[in-house]
C-alpha cells in the first residue's frame, strides 16, 4: 500500500471517530440534570416558568434530541457552530479568540518539555545504572507523579508572589511579546513537567538500547569522539521513537491545560470548557470537545504516518 493511500485511509477512518465523539458528547450533555435555560432562570427571582419555556423555544431546545443533533450537524457542515446562549452570539468567534491562548500555552509546555527532556535523557542514558541515571529516574518519576494543579499553585506562590520574579496576572501584551513570553514561563513549566518527564524516560530507554547496537560500537571503534557518536547517531535515531509518542503527550498537555488555565487564570479553551460545562452551553461544549478530539486525531495520525514512513510494515496493520 502506498503511503498516500495509507494516509487517505487513515483520514477517512477519522470521520466516524469524530462522528462518534460528537454523538457521545451531545448525548451526555442532554443527560445532565439541568439545561442552559434552567441555569439562566434558576436564580432570577423574576423569571417565570413561562419565560423559561419561551427561551427554550427560542433556542430550539424544545425539539426532540435527534432533531437538535441534526440541526447542530447541519450547522457544523456549513461552518456555523451555533450560538452561546447565555450571551447571544456565535461560538466560532469565541473559539477563535481563545484558541491562540491555548496553543501558545501548549507550545510553551512543549518547548519546556524538550529543553529539559533531551539533555536529561542523554545524561541518564550515558550514565546508565550509575548514580546520575538513578537521580534522573527519580526526577522523572517525580515529574510524572506531581499533581499539576499543586505544582502550579506552588510555583505561583513562590516565584510570582514571594520572590516577585513574575507578574501574577498576564501582562496583556501581544502573545509573542517579551513580557508575555516571560509570564508564560510558569504556566508552561507547570503544563510541560509531565510531558518532559515522560519524554526523558523514553529517550533514556531508547538511547540506552541504541547504544548497544553494532553501528555505535563501530563508530566508536573508528575513533569518532563520544560526543559526535551520541549526538549524531544515537540521539538522532532515538528521537524517532520519542517523536512517535508525541501524540500521546499532546493529549496529556491538552488535558493538563484545563487545570493549568484555571490555576493561572489564562483565558484559553480549557478554562472556557469548565465555564461552558457549568453553564451547560451545549454549542460551546460541543465545539471545544470536537476541536480537542480533532486535534488528538490529527496528532495520532501524524504519529501513525511517522511510523509508517519509518517502518513500512506498519501500513499493513491498518
Amino acid at each position: 500500500m502506498s503511503l498516500r493511500r495509507f494516509v487517505l485511509r487513515r483520514l477517512l477512518a477519522s470521520v466516524p471517530v469524530l462522528f462518534g465523539v460528537s454523538v457521545i458528547t451531545f448525548g451526555m450533555i442532554h443527560l445532565t440534570p439541568a439545561d442552559i435555560v434552567d441555569m439562566m432562570v434558576a436564580n432570577n427571582p423574576d423569571a417565570t416558568a413561562a419565560d423559561a419555556a419561551n427561551l427554550r423555544r427560542e433556542f430550539g431546545l424544545h425539539l426532540p434530541i435527534w432533531e437538535q443533533y441534526l440541526n447542530w450537524v447541519a450547522g457544523m457542515l456549513t461552518g456555523d457552530m451555533g450560538e452561546v446562549y447565555s450571551r447571544g452570539p456565535d461560538v466560532g468567534g469565541m473559539m477563535i479568540a481563545r484558541l491562540p491562548e491555548t496553543i501558545a500555552l501548549g507550545l510553551f509546555g512543549w518547548v519546556f518539555a524538550i529543553l529539559i527532556a533531551v539533555p536529561g535523557g542523554i545524561y541518564a542514558a550515558t550514565r546508565k545504572d550509575r548514580f546520575g541515571d538513578h537521580a534522573s529516574r527519580f526526577a522523572a518519576l517525580s515529574g510524572i507523579s506531581i499533581p499539576n494543579f499543586w505544582l502550579g499553585l506552588m510555583l505561583m506562590a513562590i516565584f510570582a508572589v514571594e520572590l516577585n520574579w513574575f507578574p501574577v496576572l498576564d501582562p496583556q501584551e501581544p502573545l509573542l511579546s517579551r513580557e508575555m513570553l516571560w509570564w508564560l514561563i510558569l504556566p508552561g513549566v507547570t503544563i510541560g513537567t509531565a510531558a518532559s518527564a515522560n519524554l526523558m524516560r523514553i529517550l533514556r530507554t531508547s538511547m540506552a538500547e541504541e547504544m548497544n547496537k553494532d553501528y555505535v560500537t563501530a563508530a566508536r571503534a573508528k575513533g569518532l569522539p563520544e560526543r559526535t557518536v551520541i549526538i549524531k547517531h544515537v540521539l538522532r535515531n532515538s528521537m524517532i521513537s520519542a517523536v512517535t509518542v508525541a501524540a500521546f503527550l499532546t493529549a496529556g498537555i491538552v488535558s493538563g491545560s484545563v487545570v493549568v488555565e484555571v490555576v493561572f487564570g489564562w483565558p484559553g479553551l480549557g478554562a472556557l470548557l469548565i465555564e461552558a460545562i457549568n453553564l451547560r452551553e451545549i454549542n460551546l461544549i460541543m465545539a471545544i470537545t470536537m476541536f480537542v478530539g480533532a486535534a488528538i486525531v490529527v496528532a495520532n495520525l501524524a504519529a501513525d504516518i511517522m511510523y509508517a514512513v519509518l517502518d513500512p510494515r506498519i501500513r499493513d496493520e491498518y
Partner: peptide, 12 residues
Amino acid sequence: AQVDNINHGGGG
C-alpha cells in the same frame, strides 16, 4: 514489558 508510561499529566 517495555511499556512507555505515557502519563497524561496531572489529571489525564
